[in-house]
Amino acid sequence: MVVEIKDYTKVIKGNVVLDHVNYRFESGMIYGLKGKNGSGKTMLMRAITGLIHPTEGEVVIDGKVLGKDMGFPESVGLLLENPAFLPNETGFDNLKILAGIRNQISDQKISDILEEIGLDPKDKRTYRKYSLGMKQKLGIAAAIMEEPKLIILDEPINALDEEAVKKVKELILREKERGAVIIIACHDSEELNYLSDQIVPISGGKLLKQENQKGIGI
């Protein structure tokens, strides 16, 4: 999969939140978006998933223009800011409801991904009673359970303890090995540098000159 952002500009209520952004994301790579709060990281993620529409420019995924040839990327997993699920359903049921829309994975696969991320698929507690860390894990599970070709994770290790962070990192690297395009934003520079093959600095809605490039493994 190749995701190309071509001269993308987004203006919201007179504010330029993305300013002539150009970039190319490719399969099997992890891209780390680095920037301060309000720099445009989340907006760029929304732009790539088709949740916002460009004022100018376009997002092209495997030759298809987002918003013209397709509404959303055909295979995408998403975790944006704080995850939100149905408060009165269990974690498993929430994932089952989401998975039911495309019906691509079995209940067993949902259970497996929950276990891998450190949640009990048989836990009868509703989402409302989940801790922040559990909510975050469920959000990550929702993003990767269908093995999407494009994975977008905004602050994936927020509210997670050390052990959970390790598991999440392993899962992200496994998804990379599978060949997914992975785009991450993270406030923890150390973790972002560790995970990312390419760091993409962003400030004021503009992409800055690339800082570094590296290959990594577990």
């Binding site: 088709g50 989401l98 929702a142």
Partner: peptide, 9 residues
């Protein structure tokens, strides 16, 4: 957001 991106459009 989770629902939409699974609906194709």
């Amino acid at each position: 957001q989770q629902i939409f991106i699974r609906c194709y459009s």
